Simulated assay, not measured.
Amino acid sequence: MPTPVTSAAFRPAPYLPQDLPQHTVLVVASRDGLAESAHYGSAIATAPDGSTLAAAGSPLAPFYPRSSLKPLQAVALVRAGLQLPARLLALTASSHSGAAQHRDGALEILEMHGLTPDDLENSADLPYGQAEREDWLRAGGSPTQLAQNCSGKHASMVATCRINGWPVKGYLDPAHPLQQLVARTVIDLTGEEPFGLSTDGCGTPLFSLTLRGMASAFGRIASAASSAKGGGANDGAVAPLSAEAAVGLAMQQHPDMVAGERRDVTELMRRLPGAVAKDGFEGVQLVGLPDGRAVAVKISDGGDRARMPATVRVLESLGLDPAPSSDLGVLPVFGGGRPVGVLQATDFLS
């Protein structure tokens, strides 16, 4: 793997327009009929075999999947022997809002394996969800590693180290056995060699991949979960779940642990039974479907508000309607406290 980019090694470089992905306009915000803002980006829908069904922009340009990588990391941990109740495995793949059930769940994972919050090496932060953050502050809370939205993943990472007899300290080092396993799993699920390696906001190694590769991985996870739900019995015996199926089923069964109440990713999975969905900072959204198809979206400017409208448009092109009440695919633009416009996707796949 390439040497990770850290704050000590990073050197800013000038970028010319020809060096950037050729994104296209995915989402427009209009105010009283005038296009006020436009969000560029790229998107892809893949078939179960990973081939392209629809695309826009530059879906083969390397990008950082950020927290949408967590389900793939969770698969690696399960392959390494991690066994958790479904709600805690869903938390492993989460960017949670920091509600009590999320913080308590991360602590439960640690305590199950004889560990404490002192063993975590993720960054400290306030809860991610607005309501959860306000409640936390009113109660006198301050930034902690358990409140940080990646604490479920980190708790499961140190638990996996304990299970395998690997050093807990330094588990975020790209050369650590845990992270080497994650790297091999990412390559297996995406079918891609990472274009580069960096460091995510919480401190974990972060791979640059393509939208097509990430979509293929999510399609595999969702279809594995669907196959597991469909049976698997042979002469009365049920085959053990694959790691992909275990992670996919956990996320489907506990979408509130993957994100939280009032979060669009949680709502999307509730509206699309059998789907596996995960967002990521800088405008990233992945959705795997039970038949193995998948959708991947990257918003060029990192604007989070454009992520779901673009995703809904691609899902609609596949014959799915996750936003019947138009609160995911079309969002209001307000003026004086009343709607005066909309944020909605363009016909970028036409």
Rank of each mutant, 00 (worst) to 15 (best):
M214L: 15
V314K: 00
I299M: 04
V158R: 03
L60H: 12
G50F: 03
G337L: 08
A217C: 06
D200V: 13
L272F: 11
G302E: 02
V258Y: 04
G57L: 05
L77K: 07
L120S: 03
L189N: 02
R162G: 04
D264F: 11
G213V: 05
L60N: 09
W136N: 00
L146E: 03
E111S: 12
G280W: 00
L126R: 08
L328C: 09
G335M: 13
V342W: 10
T204M: 10
S58H: 08
R305H: 05
R133H: 08
T311L: 12
A239Y: 11
A245Y: 03
T185E: 04
S95G: 06
Q130I: 15
L211C: 01
Q130T: 15
V247D: 02
A228D: 05
P14K: 13
E134T: 14
D291F: 04
S226V: 06
A243Y: 08
L89D: 01
K298M: 04
G260Y: 00
D173N: 15
S300T: 05
T144R: 07
D304L: 15
R293P: 03
A29W: 05
L268T: 01
A306I: 01
V330S: 07
T52A: 13
L16N: 13
G165S: 10
L77G: 00
P324C: 10
G203D: 02
T210C: 07
C161W: 04
A222G: 04
V297E: 00
F348H: 01
D256T: 08
G288R: 09
Y171C: 00
G203Y: 06
S350D: 09
L343Q: 03
A61H: 06
Q130H: 14
H113L: 09
G230D: 09
A245S: 09
T204A: 15
G236K: 14
L137P: 05
L69A: 12
G41M: 04
G191I: 05
K278E: 06
P194E: 00
L343S: 01
S317I: 05
G336N: 09
E121L: 08
S94P: 05
